[in-house]
Design a protein around this nucleic acid. Structure first.
Length: 473
RNA sequence: GGUCCCUUCGUCUAUCGGUUAGGACGCCAGAUUUUCAAUCUGGAGAGAGGGGUUCGACUCCCCUAGGGACUGCCA
């Protein structure tokens, strides 16, 4: 037995997206919570694709969802299950329910249903089919659905791990359709059967399903199955408190990736959205796993806050491996169609360590690295040109000799060199810093002079300086 | 309409009957200064409203208001 991993708890969680679009950021957080809880308890995290709606489910959406989950690092512990493939099993359970007298056939037409629904709504009660207790019609083979036969009395308790105990009066719960008139199982039936068959012990999902939990509990009970623990987590809203939509900037996990957020940064931010552990803000997966518990999830919906996401992401960015950041930055620059020199990768690699602390996203890292990607001779800004007085040119020429003679070309050494040079010249940095900066960067945003030179390397730094000096000779 | 859920600084949260209501992001000011950041220091900033219960309520109960979900042969 390993002492570092928790003992198997028997906990099984699952993420069950319906493949009708991309992986939504809210869905991603739901998946993350399921994953964290499974890891925390030493249990299993599963994925089930809810593709029972053949009209709306697409291959592309399935691919997009898995791509998003992979990027976020949330892998299923077992081969993902596709709900549609289990339709026979679902129908089998409906037959059992029928045999137990806990389901019935309903021959209501769409029009009749419409009318009944309107009437029920006006009267403020749940809809009920007249076929619940009526004998079958003359032609029982006519198109019909099979409904669950819910109790008319009593209450159903959903003891939610997040919301607390919630009771529903059974009379308010309508008899949901189990099998459509074409024999296809519906969502509410399929989830129950699949969760049961997959051994799911904890259903952690969006709180838009809280009402369904009561109806689903009834099906579990009718089948004499153990009802899983439910945890209904609030949805994520946009910065304005409204349901997250396109106008808020992004919804899909892929969009966050394109904007330069890194997986561990988004995971950290998402975990903090609707869940907290004391004063801890920036943490890694190991910490999140050891601290996370569904019962600590906040009840109220949270708003997406770009500023905080940026901060969290920046904290993870500075801890990330330089080689990885280099690759990501190069990829982002290419994707943006930026003109790059042949040795771009090497230039980025030497610059990333000098600028990573100031960047919030990979995209920003790309901007911060831009000065190093410029190809000699750089075009000097007018401002810089004006600063190159005879005196300054002479001073920079003297600095050039110091730089050329520097025994070690490193950030700390260069900082000391610049400092002692200023002292030996008896002037402040202001006398040569700004023009030198302009010469080395061509006006692009850049870090401290010593870091600029460390990033560029001795040859490139002296080369850029020589270019400028020569132009003033 | 009905059922259900939610409500602490601008935002994310801590508090689990007794705190000057804490932290983080953001914001403001100062420090630093060779640009922009980053960094450091300081500051402003909250219990939706009204009733109870209690010696004492952000915390428990009720009402109101506001927000949200569901009310599909979608998931």
């Amino acid at each position: 037995m390993s002492s570092s991993s928790p003992a198997p708890s028997g906990v099984v969680t699952r993420f069950a997206p319906s493949p009708t679009g991309f992986l939504h950021i809210g869905g991603a957080r739901t998946a993350l919570f399921n994953w964290l809880y499974a890891r925390h308890t030493g249990g299993k995290f599963l994925i089930r694709v809810e593709d029972t709606d053949r009209e709306r489910s697409t291959e592309a959406a399935v691919a997009a969802i898995f791509e998003g989950l992979d990027w976020l690092g949330l892998k299923s512990d077992e081969e993902p299950i596709f709900q549609y493939s289990r339709a026979d099993r679902h129908r089998e359970v409906v037959q059992e329910l029928l045999a137990k007298g806990r389901a019935y056939r309903c021959w209501m037409t769409v029009e009749e249903l419409e009318a009944a629904r309107e009437k029920a709504r006006a009267e403020g009660r749940a809809i009920r089919s007249p076929w619940r207790d009526a004998p079958p019609p003359a032609d029982p083979s006519a198109p019909h659905v099979i409904r669950f036969k819910g109790p008319l009395e009593g209450e159903t308790l959903v003891d939610d791990m997040v919301k607390g105990p919630v009771t529903f009066r059974n009379i308010e719960l309508d008899d949901l359709v189990l099998l459509r008139n074409d024999g296809a199982p519906t969502y509410n039936l399929a989830v129950v059967v699949d969760d049961h068959d997959m051994g799911v012990t904890h259903v952690i999902r969006g709180d838009d399903h809280l009402n369904n939990a009561a109806r689903q509990s009834l099906i579990y009970q009718a089948m004499e199955w153990d009802v899983p623990a439910f945890a209904h987590i609030p949805l994520i809203h946009g910065p304005d408190g409204a349901k997250l939509s396109k106008r808020h900037g992004a919804q899909a996990v892929g969009e966050f990736a394109d904007m330069g957020y890194i997986p561990e940064g988004l995971r950290n931010y998402l975990a903090r959205l609707g869940w907290g552990h004391g004063d801890d803000e920036v943490f890694n997966d190991e910490q999140a796993i050891s601290w996370f518990d569904v019962k600590d999830v906040v009840k109220a919906p949270a708003r997406l806050d770009w500023a905080k996401l940026n901060f969290i992401n920046s904290q993870h960015l500075r801890q990330a491996d330089d080689t990885r950041l280099t690759a990501l930055t190069l990829k982002a620059l290419k994707a943006a169609g930026t003109d790059l020199p042949a040795d771009a990768e090497a230039r980025i690699a030497s610059t990333v360590p000098q600028v990573k602390e100031g960047a919030k996203t990979i995209l920003e890292l790309g901007e911060h690295v831009a000065f190093a990607l410029k190809v000699r001779p750089l075009t000097l800004e007018e401002k810089t040109a004006k600063q190159l007085s005879e005196e300054t040119v002479a001073r920079l020429a003297r600095l050039r000799e110091h730089l050329a003679a520097a025994p070690v070309w490193g950030v700390a050494e260069l900082e000391a060199l610049l400092k002692s040079f200023a002292e030996s010249e008896a002037v402040g940095f202001g006398k040569f810093g700004p023009p030198l900066r302009g010469i080395l960067t061509g006006g692009a945003q850049a870090p401290d002079l010593n870091k600029i030179m460390a990033a560029l390397g001795r040859d490139e730094s002296l080369g850029r300086l020589d270019d400028a000096l020569a132009s003033r000779a």
